[in-house]
Amino acid sequence: MVIQTNGLSFSFGNQQVVKSLSLQVPAGSIYGFLGPNGAGKTTTIKMLLNLLRTGEGSIHIFGQELEANRISILSQIGSLIEQPAIYHHLTGRENLMNRAMLLQVNENKVDEMLKLVQLTNAGGKKAGQYSLGMKQRLGIALALLNDPKLLILDEPTNGLDPNGIIEIRELMMKLVANGKTVFISSHLLAEIEKMATHVGIINNGELMFQGTIHDLQNISQPLIHIETDNTVDAANLLKRHNFTVTEIDQDQLFVPFNSKQQIGDINTLLIQNGFTVFGINKQRKDLERLFLDITTKSN
């Protein structure tokens, strides 16, 4: 495991914001750390970077205890926490030069990073004049400068346009293909679903789910998605014939999926009773719906 925490807790005064968190982040994974705003994601990340002192529990990174091996562990981590920390009075290139100086990284690496995040042309421009997306990309370049084994990114796609999000996603996948591990927090579930290999879901400071992305998808039962000309009457008809209707709105209704035969039966039943069926198909719950289910159940 690259990151392993046991019973990790943290309180701000009387308010406990992280509760007995046990994370397991395997090497070479993209670990999506999901949760709504205020769930305790940033606090957890700050503990992983030794910025906040752990209340209770332990943190092991690369198999070493964090507090006792702080410097050797931090030298192998690149991080981006909340909005990128950039000196606005310096140019993008100077920001990277400053960090390269601190990390004793060769100057060539600065240009390499600028190229990687497509800021070569804007490298001489003051970072204060950068757009949010450019700042975010510069933040990622700063995090990657020392060629870290583990990259910890807190909401890196915040404020990015769709192109920017795709670029970041592709970059993460490229990094993992090169043997790195990425720990990425987000409240954008669809985004994580597209790149994560492992997922941890946190709500109110508690870890509610942890496993591979497939584990997560497997616990979500597929549904039959039905569109008809009158969903309310159709739902009543199905209920009378002992089908369970899980969700209904003006345009669609959902019934838990059992078999393909069941789809045919429902279709026949609706048509025989004079309904026009616009569409009927099997659907897997998307992560967003699943996430809502899990978090709602905990409340």
């Binding site: 700050k46 910025l51 931090l74």
Partner: peptide
């Protein structure tokens, strides 16, 4: 203020430097 303005305290204290 250089660090306050750029919000870089967290970065400074997560560097592999004591």
């Amino acid at each position: 203020s250089v660090e306050h303005k750029a919000d870089t305290w967290k970065t400074l204290f997560s560097l592999p430097i004591s």
